[in-house]
């Protein structure tokens, strides 16, 4: 695909399509490794496209500070988490009821396998920051051990991480220590459980057969309502 240069392109990092190495991202990685040393425990470069870095949990705030002030990655893109455990419910395309009736056995979940840049734990937090001048983004990952699901908050560095961390907390149950207000964001205040975990069943598919039957349920407080 031939590329005509647009009128006011400022970025110099977009390579021609056929590249094997990515010097910009490699030098970036080298800079981060120099600064953080052993805290960088894994990385992956897809040339011309993207960079993944896995850091130690204790260095999570340090790398944010370094990226923000040291390397000019001022743009906070998103923060979320991944539960690497394969779902015990399979694809859940059909409800458990149907499957049992048809005698289909739900396959046993496989072993936990982490993605790019490796990993050791079931939960990983991933975050992405961008440099708006060179238009490079970095996806950061960090392992969260299952017996201590907590991580330093990024809010002092990137205030925009506030809501993302709240979402991550309620969806995965990962505590962000130092967060100014770790409250429910989407879910009602009394909600229990962490819906985005793989062992949390997708109730819409489990409770009623697919396609879901539309039924009208009584409001929970109907009898107690003021009358």
């Amino acid at each position: 695909m031939s590329r005509l240069p647009p009128a006011d392109t400022t970025d110099a990092t977009d390579e021609p399509p056929v590249v094997v190495t990515d010097e910009a991202r490699e030098s970036l990685l080298a800079g981060i490794t120099d600064e953080l040393g052993d805290a960088v425990v894994g990385f992956h470069i897809r040339p011309g496209d993207d960079l993944w870095i896995r850091v130690d949990r204790d260095a999570w705030l340090d790398i944010a500070r370094f990226l923000h002030t040291g390397l000019g990655f001022a743009y906070f893109n998103f923060l979320s988490a991944i539960d690497w455990m394969p779902s015990p419910y399979g694809r859940s395309m059909d409800s458990g009821v149907d499957l049992t009736l048809e005698g289909v056995r739900v396959p046993e979940p496989g072993p936990v396998e982490q993605g790019l840049a490796g990993g050791d734990t079931r939960f990983q937090v991933l975050a992405r920051v961008d440099d708006v001048i060179s238009n490079m983004g970095i996806t950061l990952k960090v392992d969260i051990p299952e017996d201590d699901l907590s991580l330093a908050t990024w809010v002092p560095v990137y205030p925009g991480a506030n809501w993302h961390e709240r979402e991550c907390w309620e969806m995965f149950g990962i505590e962000f220590s130092g967060h100014p207000g770790l409250r429910h964001l989407y879910l009602p205040g009394e909600f229990e459980g962490n819906p985005m975990r793989k062992d949390y069943p997708l109730l819409a598919r489990q409770v009623r057969p697919w396609p879901g039957i539309v039924d009208v349920e009584a409001m929970p407080d109907d009898d107690k309502a003021d009358s």
Binding site: F76, N77, F78, Y158, G160
Partner: peptide, 9 residues
């Protein structure tokens, strides 16, 4: 601009 960037606007 810097606030906007740090909030991910």
């Amino acid at each position: 601009a810097d606030v906007g960037l740090s909030y991910g606007l």
